[in-house]
């Protein structure tokens, strides 16, 4: 057995455990911490897949920025004297839907004829940069992405600021 297999098993268990923690924990703060744990585990899986740059991006964006935003929102929206937790809620319909979806996808993945050999060279950061400038439309798409950042900023300011209309 390779060390990488062991690493995969540990990281996969950690990711699934984090997912279960998000779904089962009653405290919203705990759920955010579980989600942080899950995304760090997935970042580890990216390293196994030799996508170090994306692993870093996941840790910074999801583990750092997103968790921080969620925690700040919890702190801002929590009312005084009210516990930051929620009643445990479940839905049989959602469970059936999720299990059926997982079963369908697992069956299809098991039946698929997938290439098992890794590519000779793992995609590097340089490739990403070259791909970005390969075609005008891709540059336009990354421009569109930055416009969306602008959009989220506008929306955040608009919804949080007082303003008295016209």
């Amino acid at each position: 057995m390779y060390a990488s297999d062991l690493a995969f098993a540990v990281l996969a268990l950690a990711a699934l455990g984090g997912a279960a923690g998000v779904l089962l924990s009653r405290s919203t703060v705990h759920a955010v911490l579980w989600s942080l744990e899950s995304s760090v585990a997935v970042a580890g899986l990216y390293v196994l897949l030799s996508a170090e740059f994306l692993a870093l991006a996941v840790v910074i964006l999801w583990g750092g920025a997103a968790s921080l935003a969620l925690l700040v929102t919890i702190a801002v929206t929590a009312r005084h004297g009210e516990p930051v937790s929620r009643p445990r809620e479940g839905s049989l319909r959602a469970a059936v839907l999720a299990v059926a979806f997982a079963a369908l996808m697992l069956a299809r993945i098991a039946g698929a004829d997938l290439a098992t050999a890794e590519t000779a060279v793992a995609p590097r950061m340089r490739d990403l940069g070259e791909a970005l400038f390969a075609e005008p439309a891709l540059m336009a798409a990354s421009g569109a992405l930055s416009l969306m950042l602008l959009l989220v900023m506008i929306a955040g300011v608009w919804w949080s600021r007082g303003g008295d209309g016209r």
Binding site: A137, L138, A140, A141, S142, A144, L145, L147, M148, L151
Partner: peptide, 10 residues
């Protein structure tokens, strides 16, 4: 699909 996905979000 890459261009389309980003454009759809925008």
């Amino acid at each position: 699909l890459v261009v389309a996905f980003v454009a759809m979000e925008l």
